[in-house]
Nucleic acid binder design. Sequence first.
DNA 1: ATGCCGTGGAAACCACGA
Length: 257
Amino acid sequence: MRIATYNVNGVNGRLPVLLRWLDETKPDVVCLQELKAPQEKFPEQAIKDAGYNAIWHGQKSWNGVAILGRGLQPEEVRRVLPGDPEDEHSRYIEAHVGGLLVGCLYLPNGNPAPGPKLDYKLGWFKRLTAHAKTLLELKEPVVLTGDYNVMPTELDVYKPENWVNDALFLPEVRTAFKNLVAQGWTDALRKLHPDEKIYTFWDYFRNAYERNAGLRIDHFLLSPQLDKRLIAAGVDRNVRGWEKSSDHGPVWIELKD
DNA sequence: ATGCCGTGGAAACCACGA
């Protein structure tokens, strides 16, 4: 079974690219981030016609997350990250699908840092870490995936020295990611490719994609129950080269059925 | 390497992204 995550950067503006990628790679479960569409503007019919049932949490202009199942119906568990009733961003949705519990997340960017946006990011990370612990305690197979907006190590940045003061690479942010993983999660891409430069994002500027000036910020964390089932993982980096592409590429894992 | 591009929404610019 193939599970993918894709920060689409506008689900309607990206619809032709999204549909082409779904048709070419046919993942069983798909997590989307940055829908940038209100709840009622999600392209439900086009996605249904492509063979996918979807649940989504939209928001006008910003954020927005969705979980798609190819011939599977995602059964929603929650659409808000617990821990802050004041937080109105659509950045988390969770569902049972394909025998897994799947959490789809869009972690805040945090720039400019320092400042209130970094504080929001670190607070969100704290809430995610608390929630992730409860997910591990369920003893179910759990996939926690999406745009974490963190490069965990220097291997995950084309030019680390340019990013030392950036909210995606600050020590406290990397530590937050490390502490989350240390609960018992597996960083799926790193497990299978420990020494490889792997990027999931290339800026629209400065020919970043052509120069492979990328970042690895979209991640798959797997609960211990899934560790032995992980057989492959990668990035559909060619999609980033398509016309009207998102600045992220789709990331995927393959699990033994 | 400093939003130089891209998206969405509102208003012919702005917020936001990483």
